[in-house]
């Protein structure tokens, strides 16, 4: 049996806020492979985003390990984590978080600047992604002039710019209506699966979660169900 791309074992996160310690994530374990599109659902405060942040190298776990290709990112230094995020992770944030003073295309090219690779190849990749995402005509507009859907597509493009192992998505439909939300999730799935990436999406929208291959349900930080959408109750 081959090593899974992502192997999460006994993962836990406790926030110390004065006298009261809050266990946001408790003993979560799962594996996932390239080509999977996983949705994490659960009520507010169930630890969805905390789990996503730990997998994305933004937050250090209190217990457990996150093995990516055999390497435990829970043991990485902040410098190694920055490199991990730069090379292995593509993030689509809830508020899309584009840099507002940059154009859509420049928001993609930021990743190239950070990676310091071949600018010409990066430029061609940005153009190709913008074309595939259907926003090439709006790529020259400053982020603040783009619509919510356009910004979300640009954010997806940015997440794919570094050809990551994972695409981690936090509430991608929060600011969109149901039709546009569904379009964005379908687009994400298409992009992720066609590139053989592992997609992990946090959402509170069960209808969107049903589009995924697998759904993890979190309650009070615990993974209570790992299911296929067909069996989601």
């Amino acid at each position: 049996m081959s090593t899974p791309l992502l192997d999460v074992r006994g993962l836990g996160k406790t926030y110390d806020s004065g006298a009261a310690a809050v266990q946001a994530v408790r003993d979560v374990s799962f594996t996932a492979n390239a080509g999977d599109f996983v949705a994490i659902v659960g009520p507010s405060g169930s630890g969805k985003t905390t789990l996503l942040a730990m997998i994305g190298g933004l937050l250090a776990p209190t217990t457990g390990s996150i093995l990516v290709g055999g390497r435990d990112i829970a043991r990485m230094s902040s410098r190694e984590l920055a490199r991990y995020r730069r090379d292995s992770v593509g993030y689509v944030f809830q508020a899309n978080n584009l840099l507002p003073y940059l154009t859509g295309r420049e928001n993609l090219m930021v990743i190239a600047s950070i990676r310091r690779g071949d600018r010409r190849a990066a430029s061609a990749r940005a153009d190709r992604l913008l074309g595939e995402l259907g926003v090439v005509g709006r790529a020259g507009a400053v982020a603040t002039e783009l619509s919510g859907g356009e910004r979300q597509r640009i954010a997806i493009g940015r997440a794919l710019m570094n050809d990551p192992l994972f695409v981690l998505v936090d509430e991608p439909t929060a600011s969109l209506d149901s039709v546009r939300g569904r379009q964005v999730v379908e687009l994400l799935m298409t992009e992720v699966k066609s590139r053989d990436k592992l997609g992990i999406m946090v959402t509170h929208d069960l209808a969107m979660a049903q589009l995924a291959d697998r759904v993890f349900e979190l309650h009070d930080g615990e993974l209570v169900r790992d299911s296929r959408p067909a069996v989601l109750g």
Binding site: L58, R86, D87, F93, L99, P100, S113, I114, R158
Partner: peptide, 15 residues
């Protein structure tokens, strides 16, 4: 906030 985004997508503090 912008610096946070840059760091989240892999920028080092040096960058």
């Amino acid at each position: 906030a912008h610096i946070g985004v840059l760091k989240a997508v892999g920028a080092s503090s040096g960058f």
